[in-house]
Simulated scan of single mutants.
Amino acid sequence: MYEVIDVTESVKVLRAPVNVVFFFKSTLGKSECLVIDSGSSNEYGKKILKYLESQGVNRFSILNSHSHADHIGGNSFLQERTKCKIYATYFESVFIEHPQLEPMYLWGGPIFEGIDNKFLMAKSSIVTDIVEYGWSSELDVEIIPLKGHSFNMVGVLIDDGKKRVLFVADAVVSMQTIEKYKVYFLYDVHEHLKTLRGLNKWAENVDVVVPSHGEIFDFSKEDDGENKKREFLNLIKGNEKVIEDVLGLILGILVEPKTIDEILSEVAANFLIPIDATSYVLLLQTLKAYCSYLVNVNEIGLTFERGKLEYIRMH
């Protein structure tokens, strides 16, 4: 599934396992393009470059929504070939330029065999420009904070005069992704819940929502625009329900003090999640995020009484 579809005259989307957005601009007769994210590999980079060349693009830049490997995998190929600019927020830029930090952060120590793969560690690329929240006159887009899934993930609002298109990166994941992975990756549960609540409001102020994974929601279509809006709002509820389910499961597990590994083992067994090195470190960090949230809302606490860090219910 690699197909470029039209959203507006100036906004196109490469529909793929990881969606890539193209925002075309014309300046002094030279066709320019802002590419939002670059997929998970060199192959994405090759497909992106081939498409841009077919459209007569003379110059393009990349805006990375966040630093996860499946969103920056084409950066290195494209930058080496074209010397293109790459934009990102400051925090995410550090991980884009030093991608080995991703598996090191997930594991909490030096990289070992099994977490040194393309799913967790892309090739390095250079972030040439740092973006801030708000309107970017240089890029002609608005940068929207969407924290929670990653340290400082952003969405991108494009208004080309025809439609308002909001790229939401991994702020929501498809129900197919939830069914496949059961517990989707989060860095900060509190921030992610704020992001999901914010998306409910954005749904009333845009015409099209483009997530990184899954289908595009076009609210402007006369025949089924309202249905697409309902589908998107229901997807947000589905994402929130996963969080509620995992929080409830953790509280149920903590009938007695448990280590994070003991919690992980029971969560994996409950959701039938197969464990290997990659899935382990992703689930480990996600459950740490859930437990930190529960600590912050005083549902659980920490104890070191048995010579190890354990989580314990407060009520």
Rank of each mutant, 00 (worst) to 15 (best):
Y105T: 13
L106G: 02
L106F: 14
W107I: 01
W107Q: 12
G108H: 10
P110G: 08
P110T: 06
I111A: 07
F112R: 13
F112Q: 11
E113Q: 12
G114I: 02
G114N: 07
D116M: 10
K118N: 06
K118E: 11
F119E: 14
L120H: 09
L120R: 10
M121Y: 05
A122C: 04
S124W: 00
S125L: 10
I126A: 09
I126E: 14
V127P: 07
V127I: 06
V127R: 08
T128V: 05
I130E: 05
I130T: 14
I130H: 06
E132I: 00
E132M: 09
Y133V: 05
Y133P: 01
G134L: 04
W135S: 06
S136L: 04
S136Y: 04
S137V: 02
S137F: 08
E138N: 11
L139V: 06
L139R: 06
D140Y: 04
V141F: 07
I143W: 02
I144D: 00
P145C: 12
L146E: 01
K147T: 01
H149Q: 10
H149E: 07
S150Y: 13
F151D: 05
N152W: 02
M153A: 15
V154W: 00
V154H: 02
G155A: 03
G155C: 08
V156C: 14
V156T: 15
I158A: 03
R164G: 06
V165P: 11
L166S: 09
L166K: 12
L166F: 13
L166Q: 09
L166C: 10
F167H: 15
F167L: 13
V168I: 15
V168S: 05
A169N: 09
A169L: 02
A169F: 01
A171M: 04
V173W: 00
S174Y: 04
M175W: 01
Q176C: 00
T177A: 13
E179S: 13
E179R: 14
K180F: 10
Y181E: 15
V183P: 05
Y184I: 01
Y187K: 14
Y187E: 13
